[in-house]
Write a protein that binds this DNA or RNA. Structure first.
Lengths: 125, 125
DNA sequence: GTGCATTAGATGCATGCGCACATAGTTTCC
DNA sequence: GGAAACTATGTGCGCATGCATCTAATGCAC
């Protein structure tokens, strides 16, 4: 039963805060807007991009998802009509993901929820 | 394309740090010791407990896992011979989880890896 | 004691994830 | 210009997770 060094305590606190916040976010976004955390993060990043459009790869750099998880998250959003995919004509391997009108609405509707949850959880640390 | 308020930026940084650390931990613990992060966390908490023994419920309060995920993590560890389960005689609904000798060895072997990874990742933030 | 609410833990199920691999398009080098 | 290496993305698969639910044991009321 030795003393835990500072780095382990810091890690435990980091993990605690992350879990508190991500669980609260997941729950609230799901209940009030029918969005998972990953899905919201994708449309939130798109909403912050020029013309609400990004390449898959650029999205992948911003979002904490593996390439395959991102591919499926975008597929779910596309099925739901929140984004659409378009081939990139310059590099035909590439895919542009664009927020639809509906996607933009949903993102704007969900954003206050995200901020409220984060403010409440992260402030109480 | 509005400015992100501080709380969102704080959240993104928190998530980034958590992901960096948890991915590195997961990878190193798996490669060098055949342990998942959840599994290591369970045996690490047990190693820090009196007589290396805790009730499932106490374990659940310390570990960031749902009750069902914990139940399965302990089941995996039991199959691997790192912990054993024992009925609690006072309250026969309860289950004591105890670290075995082998479990203790594995935890002690993996602890330096955990600390090294955390030191490296958390320091570089 | 008998019945009912509560608690501890396990399990069926659906889902999202990462890994490895497949596919298609592009660049490089000769 | 053709083969080989590289890049961007999608997909099969196995696994861990959370939710809801199940079972067993305890406690409480009467």
């Amino acid at each position: 039963m030795s003393e835990q060094p500072g780095v382990v305590l810091a890690w435990r606190e980091l993990a605690q805060r992350y879990h508190d916040a991500s669980c609260a976010l997941e729950r609230e976004l799901q209940e009030r807007h029918g969005l998972g955390m990953s899905e919201f993060e994708v449309i939130d990043r798109l909403a912050g991009a020029a013309e609400c459009q990004l390449r898959m790869q650029e999205l992948g750099e911003q979002v904490h998802l593996s390439q395959s998880a991102l591919s499926r998250a975008v597929a779910r959003l596309e099925r739901g009509g929140l984004v659409c995919r378009a081939l990139c004509e310059q590099d035909r391997r590439g895919v542009f993901v664009t927020l639809t009108e509906e996607g933009r609405r949903r993102q704007e509707a969900a954003r206050p929820t995200q901020r409220a949850v984060l403010t409440q959880i992260l402030a109480s640390g």
